[in-house]
Design a protein around this nucleic acid. Structure first.
Length: 197
DNA sequence: CTTGCGATTCTA
DNA sequence: AGAATCGCAAGG
């Protein structure tokens, strides 16, 4: 296993987004390593992307992390109740990010289940198992991520990505990004990437 | 499997 | 006011 370094994140957002698929993410929550495999992402490419929070050069306390160095976590609250996790990309001053939309549990699934449903995995309905962490809000619930973790460094020992080095036996599917109807022509860009299915 | 709708609070 | 969402119920 090798931890992804700063340079990995400093590249083109569309490339980083696709390369994050199949990578493993570790978040140490209360002393427990929660590990998931990334399966679904979206690219947000900065000041010219109408769907991006920094569109038009918008710089506010919320989006401040996006303006900084790559490889940090940008976490914001959506619809008043759900956290969404992003990975900052590109060079500092070019405020882009990759939204992590979905992942599957790899290690300590039981703890993630308690975070998400306050009960054991084998008591879940099939519907709950199927929709366990296949959305940005659901994933953050499972991992115990909130905007408290906004600004964390992915080169830390508590929160990082790694490449398992295993075979990539999958095709990358491309689709329109979700719930950005307001973004006009940018709503049609195929900047959502996912594997498995 | 898909659709429709209410919940809830930060952000600007 | 509007938002990079979710869970549940109902219908095909």
């Amino acid at each position: 296993m090798k931890k992804l370094d700063r340079r990995f994140y400093q590249r083109d957002t569309l490339v980083v987004a696709q390369e994050l698929l199949g990578k493993y993410m570790v978040y140490n929550h209360n002393g427990v390593d929660l590990v998931v495999k990334i399966t679904d992402v979206e690219a947000y490419t900065g000041i010219h992307d109408k769907a991006c929070h920094t569109y038009g050069g918008k710089r506010t306390p919320r989006t401040e992390v996006m303006w900084g160095e790559a490889g940090y976590a940008y976490i914001y609250l959506i619809y008043g109740m759900y956290a969404c996790l992003n990975v900052v990309t590109e060079e500092a001053g070019n405020p882009c990010a990759v939204l992590i939309r979905g992942a599957v549990p790899v290690k300590n699934r039981e703890q993630m289940c308690l975070n998400r449903y306050q009960k054991s995995y084998d008591t879940l309905t099939n519907y709950q198992k199927k929709n366990f962490s296949n959305g940005p809000g659901k994933l953050c619930l499972a991992l115990g991520l909130t905007k408290e973790q906004n600004g964390m460094d992915f080169l830390s020992d508590q929160f990082y990505f790694y490449d398992s080095g295993e075979e990539k036996g999958y095709a990358i599917h491309k689709a329109k990004r979700i719930n950005i109807d307001y973004a006009e022509e940018a709503a049609d860009y195929l900047w959502r990437f996912y594997i498995n299915k």
